[in-house]
Simulated scan of single mutants.
Amino acid sequence: MDDKRSSAAATVSIQRFRAFLCVGISGFVFYNPTSAIQERSALVCENSLLTLDCEKKTGVIRISKANYGRLNLGTCNSLGTIEGWNLRCIQPNSKGIVAERCDGHPKCSITASSEVFGDPCVNTFKYLQVYYRCEPRTPPYTTESTTGTTTTRKAITTTPLRRVCDAVYIEGKNWPYTNVGDVASMKCPPPKVGTVTWRCTGRGWLGERPDDSKCELPVTESPSGETTTQKIRFCEMTVSQGIIWPQVRVGKEVERPCPEGKLGKVTWKCTGAGWQGERPDESMCQLPIRAPIVCENSVLTLDCEKKKGIIRISEANYGRINLGTCKSQNTTDEDVRCIHPESKRIVAERCDGHPECNITASSEVFGDPCVNTSKYLQVNYSCEPRSKHTVTYFE
Rank of each mutant, 00 (worst) to 15 (best):
E255S: 03
C45K: 09
R16C: 12
S48P: 07
R163H: 09
Y169G: 15
P136K: 10
I156N: 13
R386Y: 01
S362I: 11
N93W: 11
S94W: 11
H105M: 06
C76Q: 13
I311K: 12
E39M: 14
G24A: 07
V347N: 08
G319A: 04
G319M: 07
K344I: 05
R137S: 04
S109L: 00
V12G: 06
L50S: 07
A8W: 15
Q329G: 15
I321K: 02
E315N: 12
S298Q: 15
E305W: 04
T220S: 15
G202C: 03
K214C: 06
G202Q: 03
E255C: 01
C165Y: 01
L50N: 05
D119L: 12
V336D: 03
S26D: 14
S343N: 09
K344V: 12
P136D: 12
I346V: 14
C326Y: 00
N317C: 05
T51L: 02
C188E: 01
W245D: 05
P288Y: 11
V116S: 00
N86D: 15
D368Y: 02
I359R: 02
Q15A: 14
T146S: 06
Y177N: 07
S185H: 08
H105G: 00
T392G: 11
T58L: 09
R233L: 08
W175N: 13
T301H: 13
V130C: 03
T197L: 10
R233M: 09
S7L: 13
S222T: 12
T331H: 04
T178M: 13
V250C: 04
E171P: 06
C89D: 12
S114D: 11
T392Q: 10
S328M: 06
E144K: 08
T332A: 13
Q38S: 13
Y131H: 14
H105N: 06
E395D: 06
R133M: 08
I61G: 02
R233C: 09
Y132T: 06
L217K: 05
N358P: 01
L52S: 03
N317P: 04
S41W: 12
W205I: 02
G148D: 02
N330S: 12
V130K: 03
E255T: 00
S213Q: 09
V379Y: 10
C338R: 04
K192D: 14
E39G: 11
L50I: 07
G84Q: 03
S109M: 07
R5I: 04
Q230G: 01
V168H: 11
Q286L: 14
S328E: 09
G324P: 00
T124D: 14
I25S: 15
R163C: 01
L300F: 00
Y131W: 15
C102E: 02
Y169R: 15
E46V: 12
